[in-house]
Simulated assay, not measured.
Amino acid sequence: MSAPFTLTDLVQALERSGNAVALLASHLSDDEARWQPGPGRWSALEIINHLADEESADFRTRLALLLHAPREAWPPIDPQRWVQQRRYNERSLLPSVERFLTERQASLQQLLSWAEPEWQARRGSLSAADLAASWQAHDLLHLRQLAEVRYLYLETQGYNLEYAGMWPGLRRSPEEPAELEANA
């Protein structure tokens, strides 16, 4: 099976989603940037710093190793622990967004320096195409997470958001079942 995208497609997708992350996260107040929807749930600031660290330590590094140094060990990562260890929520928002964008630009420049990769190259059960698609999906997952945090923050400010419509699957707390019906 061939990859459902080219290197150019990957670069364009990552550039678009990186810009979307920055737009969604920029210009939040300090309170909103640090606000967490509940215990164990990430703030916008934590999401942005997670994305910046994942950009450099995970996706960019691991795709390069898979394609160009397949026998080299992957450096260990611990994204869940980094949130607390690296004190993401104590950082400032704009420098965090800028750091993410700087890391994303470094990734795009690296990708643009390559010839079209052998997307079928593998590391265990993971192909280069799988890793590249996962990189794109990771952005989408966190774009959704950023939008949910923003929506929930607006709710906590006392606004009646019924006019916006129901958000299918939105969880306001870990114990609450997801809403399943859209209210258009």
Rank of each mutant, 00 (worst) to 15 (best):
M1K: 07
S2L: 15
A3G: 01
P4A: 06
F5R: 04
T8V: 07
D9H: 12
D9T: 09
L14N: 01
E15A: 06
E15C: 03
R16A: 10
R16V: 11
S17I: 06
G18T: 03
N19D: 07
A20H: 12
V21Y: 01
L23V: 12
L23Y: 08
L24I: 09
H27M: 09
D31H: 13
E32H: 14
Q36G: 00
G40A: 07
G40F: 08
R41Q: 15
W42A: 08
S43C: 07
S43W: 08
S43Q: 04
A44C: 08
L45K: 01
I47P: 00
I47V: 08
I48W: 01
I48G: 01
N49G: 11
H50T: 13
L51N: 01
D53H: 12
F59P: 00
F59W: 15
T61D: 11
A64D: 12
L65V: 10
L66P: 01
L67Y: 04
H68Y: 07
H68S: 00
A73I: 06
A73S: 14
P76Q: 03
P76S: 05
I77F: 03
D78K: 14
P79E: 11
Q80E: 14
V83L: 10
V83N: 02
R86F: 10
R86E: 14
R87C: 04
R87K: 08
Y88G: 07
N89L: 02
S96T: 10
S96V: 08
F100H: 05
F100D: 04
S107H: 11
S107E: 15
Q109N: 11
L111P: 07
W114C: 00
W114Q: 02
A115C: 13
A115W: 12
A115G: 15
E116C: 12
E116G: 00
E118K: 08
Q120A: 15
G124W: 03
A128R: 00
A129M: 07
L131R: 02
A133P: 03
Q136P: 00
Q136H: 10
A137F: 10
D139T: 02
D139V: 01
L143N: 03
Q145W: 02
L146E: 02
E148H: 10
E148V: 13
L152R: 15
L152W: 05
Q157E: 14
Q157L: 14
G158N: 05
L161R: 04
E162M: 07
Y163P: 06
M166A: 15
W167Q: 12
G169R: 09
L170F: 06
R171N: 05
R172T: 05
S173D: 13
P174M: 09
E175W: 13
E175D: 14
E176H: 15
A178E: 11
E181M: 15
A182I: 11
N183G: 14
N183Y: 08
A184V: 14
